[in-house]
Each structure stands twice: as C-alpha cells, then as structure tokens.
Design a protein around this nucleic acid. Structure first.
Length: 540
DNA sequence: AAGCCTAGCGCC
DNA sequence: AGGGCGCTAGGCTT
C-alpha cells in the first residue's frame, strides 16, 4: 500500500489507497508517519531530501518511498523534455536590484500536488515499453534517496585528532589563519633556490609557467604529468609542494573545522545529481575523499567499518549489458582482468585494464588503442556494444541504460555545427571541428550506457544492503549497523563488532541480488571484496 | 564584493 | 583528442 504525503497550507494530508485522508499539522507529521510505518507503506512524496530529514531527526525511519521529484526527472529525460516543475526549491532570495519580481512564478512552480503527480507518473510508467524496468529504477532511485538522507544523518565516523596529527606530520603545525604551513614554505624556498631565476609565484599556474621557462624548462602548463617528464632538480620539491598544498587547501584544518562536528563528517549526498544517474555530493567533496585523509575515518570504540567494493564493476556491467559470454567467463573469478589475460586476449593485466577502460571511455591513443583490436576479437559483443553506443551519439541520437535512463540530446549548437559541416561548400576546418565534436559526444554516450547502468546496479546493491540491515523492531538508526558512505562502487557500513559478519554477508548477498534484479538471468558475476577494519585506510 | 572562468587535482 | 564529477586558487569582469 502507499500513502501520499501532500502539503496543504501549514498542514499535511496523508492519503491512503482507499482515498482515506488524515490531515495533520506539520508539527505532528513525525508521529503520524511513525504510527503508519508499522504497516510498511510506501510513502509517496515530492522530495525525500526535504521530507525525510525532520522525520529522522525525530527518530522516525521510513522503509520505502516513491520520490516524485527524482522520478519526474527520469521520466522527463525519457520523454526528451525538461523536468515538469521546479520541485519546491527555495524561492530565490529577494534582491533589491532585481529587475522583475520572480517570486510569484517560483512559488507557483514549486507547488506540486503530490496525488496528481503520482497519478501522472504511474500512467507514464505503464505506457513505457519497459514498465517493469522503469518501476525498478524508480524504486531504486527512491531507496537511494532515503539512504542518502540516512547517511548524512548518521555521518561518517571521523577522528579529528587523527586528522590533525596526520596534517601536522606532513605540513608542520597548523599555521595562523592565512599563513602557509612551514613544510610548504620550506618547499617553496627550495624550488626558488634550485630554479635560481628570482621569485617563483608557485601558486599561480600561468606565472609559474613563465618562471619555469625563464629557468630553461620548456613547459606549456604546470600539470604534474607534464612536470614529471622534466629532468631538473627543482621538479621533485615542486611536485611535493603541489601534493601537500592540495592536502592543505582541500582537506586541511579549514576543511576539518568546517565539515567535521562531534566526530562525524556529514556531507549532503545528491542522488541523481549526475547526468548518468550517479550520485553527486554537495559540500566537503565527499565523493573525492583523498586516500591521504582516510586514516582519519575511524570506527567508534566497539564498532568496526565494513568496507565493501565491487570488483571491476564497469567491465562486468558491460559484459552483462552486451550478453558477452566470453567476457562473462573471463569474469567468473574474482579478477576479471586476470580472466581476460587467461583467455589469451592480451599479454598482461595492465593491458587488460587499460584496454577495457579505453573501450568504455573512448580512448584513441597509447596502449589502450593498441589492444582494442585484440579485445574486439575476443569479446566482440562487449566491444560492439560500446562502439554502437558511440556511433549513436555521433549521429546525435540518445542512448539508454539497462533500466531505461536516457542520455540527453546534444545541445542545439552541436546540431547546428553538424548540419553546417554537412552542407555544400563547408570549409574543411568546419568539417574537422564538427567531426571532433561528434566524436566527443560519441565518447559521452559510449560511457553513458556503462556508467549509468553501473549506477543502477549500485543503487540496487545499496537498497538490498539497506533492506538486509533493516530492523523492523525499530530502534535508532545509529544504534545498529548502518550505511555511512557510498562512492559509486563502494559502500561502508558502521557496525557494532558483534554484527560485522552478518553485515559482510548482507553486502555479499545484496550484490548477487543486484545482478539478478538489473539483468535477470546473466552469467556475469558481481563479486565484492569486504574488509572489516578500524580505519578506512586499512581497506584494500 | 560578487560572479564567472580556467587550471589543476582529488575521486570513481 | 579517455567518461563523469566537486573544490580551490588565481585572475578577470561587472
């Protein structure tokens, strides 16, 4: 059964299957939801990110929901239209210099009648050629939205003292605000001394290029890959400076002050935030947590981190998508790349890895391009699948993931370039640049099908883990094993030590379920490695 | 001062 | 001339 949650001027209507309505003041919503949650309804509401945090704060957990905003975005993508409404986004703050008053319009767009929208979405899903897949995607997306809020609520356990210690270890003591740590000062002086061309503006890439050239180093940029190719004594300290400076600015003491409170890092996860369906994050750079700071991610006393990682997820996804039996066989063990080597297709694991990544990203140079023909011979269906997605993109067509998320159409400027290049008397440069733009869009659609389907698998995995950890008898989320982190193909559960084995089992079993859910019968396996550790850095 | 852009680098 | 992101600093414009 489902219960639609509909806002009505300071009150909230809860509408059940039979059309029965209970209208409660917003202040009493949590208890009204708690009362009904016992019947395991699916909560149909406009936006999990808005409705769920206050419920969790009141100690009320919700098992299932349908997120109208996220599903609308999916359906709009499929229909090739813009999302139908602004979903309750806060109105733009009033600005005195604004030329026209947008508030009325913004409010109107923000008003979504949940029951009406729910009916519309059900009809749209039923009318889709693959309603079962789309239903699954809507459920997975919505479960992800619940999990995202729960992970922010619980927070990733973070030992601020350990973080401070590791910063001090490599940077020196925390400097006064606005000052540079001692280790960076020393490295900057060293670079200056070794270049010996006067002051070196080390933090400004364009000015640094000028200084390097003054020192006789032929560089076009200050990218570390380019600097590494140079043979000069100043390069090593310069690269070291960049690494430490990055740590200091991105994940240093300021980051710690801003993002870690009461032993927890609580980023906002943004389900569906990426065009492919991957999650994005907002604040703290949660999805780019550098390995350097992972020693600070530490389980509470008596607890452990159960860290699970899906092995070679994307090539396995491609094998399942394309039904490539040979690649499924190569992935039968724990290491798909080793399986590709064993099949005789390529000489080394590195060749297998770089070649597969190149096939999925559209690499055209180096080792990746070299081994592609061999991979194509051994795994014609898998390679053919991404090639065909690339060709579709080059023609300006949309592609879709396994469960039905569609890629956007290229911008109108792209189409105009293509047609201009195809017309009589087009300049050669126009043709070349249009061709290059077409290839570029093809690389996007090529990757979209794999990355997007991997995101679907990951959502199904996460939902399965959450379901297995769910305790019907209630209790606070954080009193029992709970998800605390997700990065595309990796999950972390914070768990009391006495439960880690069952948590590990849940992570494994849910991975198997996810493969069957997304692909039905498939020979492709999705092994996950699970590590039970005190610190995130001890995993892998 | 605020907004926007680029360069660069972190993650998957 | 390999896909997707977020974030920071510098530097420019408004």
């Amino acid at each position: 059964m489902q219960i639609i949650v509909e806002r009505r001027a300071g009150t909230v209507a809860l509408i059940d299957d039979d059309g029965g309505e209970a209208v409660v003041p917003e202040t009493e919503l949590a208890s009204a939801v708690a009362e009904r949650e016992a019947e395991h309804p699916r909560w149909v509401w406009t936006d999990t990110a808005q409705w769920y945090p206050p419920l969790l704060a009141a100690g009320v957990r919700v098992e299932r929901c349908h997120d109208l905003r996220l599903v609308d975005a999916l359906l709009a993508g499929i229909a090739g239209t813009a999302p139908s409404r602004e979903w309750g986004r806060a109105p733009a703050p009033a600005r005195s210099d604004t030329l026209f008053d947008v508030d009325d319009e913004t409010d109107a767009r923000a008003t979504v009648i949940a029951s009406t929208e729910w009916a519309r979405q059900q009809a749209a899903i039923a009318a889709h050629p693959e309603p079962a897949r789309l239903t699954l995607l809507a459920a997975a997306e919505s479960a992800g939205a619940l999990t995202a809020v729960e992970m922010q609520h619980a927070g990733l356990p973070w030992n601020a003292a350990a973080h401070d210690a590791l910063l001090t270890e490599v940077l020196g003591a925390r400097p006064a605000p606005g000052r540079r740590p001692a280790a960076l000062d020393a490295l900057a002086s060293e670079v200056e001394r070794l270049l010996d061309v006067g002051p070196v503006p080390i933090d400004s890439p364009p000015a640094l290029v000028t200084a390097l050239r003054r020192a006789g180093l032929e560089v076009a940029s200050t990218r570390s890959a380019e600097l590494k190719r140079l043979d000069h004594p100043a390069i090593a300290p310069l690269l070291q400076y960049k690494t430490l400076s990055r740590l200091h600015t991105a994940n240093g003491w300021n980051w710690l002050d801003e993002w870690v409170r009461d032993g927890r890092f609580r980023p906002t996860f943004v389900p569906g935030g990426v065009v492919t369906g991957r999650w994005a994050s907002d604040g703290g750079g949660a999805l780019q947590l550098p390995k350097q700071v992972r020693p600070a991610v530490q389980a509470d006393d008596g607890w452990a981190l159960v860290v699970a990682d899906a092995s070679q997820l994307e090539p396995r996804i491609l094998a399942a998508l394309s039904g490539d039996a040979a690649m499924a066989r190569a992935g039968a063990g724990e290491d798909l790349y080793a399986g590709i080597v064993a099949s005789g297709a390529v000489p080394s694991r590195e060749h297998a890895k770089v070649g597969m990544l190149g096939a999925m990203y559209g690499g055209t140079t180096g080792v990746s391009a070299q081994v592609l023909p061999r991979l194509a011979r051994s795994f014609p269906q898998a390679i053919g699948f991404v090639e065909s997605a690339a060709r579709a993109g080059e023609r300006g067509e949309r592609v879709r993931t396994r469960l039905g998320r569609t890629s956007p159409l290229p911008p109108s400027s792209w189409r105009e370039r293509q047609s201009a290049a195809g017309s009589e008397g087009a300049a050669e440069s126009e043709v070349r640049s249009a061709r290059s733009a077409a290839r570029s869009w093809g690389r996007f659609t090529r990757n979209f099908v794999v990355q997007g389907t991997a995101a679907e698998w990951a959502l199904a995995w996460m939902a399965g883990v959450r379901r297995r950890l769910w305790r019907a008898d209630g209790g606070a989320l954080t009193d029992q094993p709970h998800l605390v982190f997700f990065v595309h193909d990796e999950l972390i559960v914070h768990s009391p030590r006495e439960h880690v084995d069952e948590v590990a089992r849940a992570l494994q079993e849910a991975a198997g379920d996810a493969g069957r859910l997304v692909f039905g019968e498939t020979a492709v396996t999705f092994p996950v490695t699970v590590a039970i550790v005190d610190r995130y850095s001890e995993a892998k």
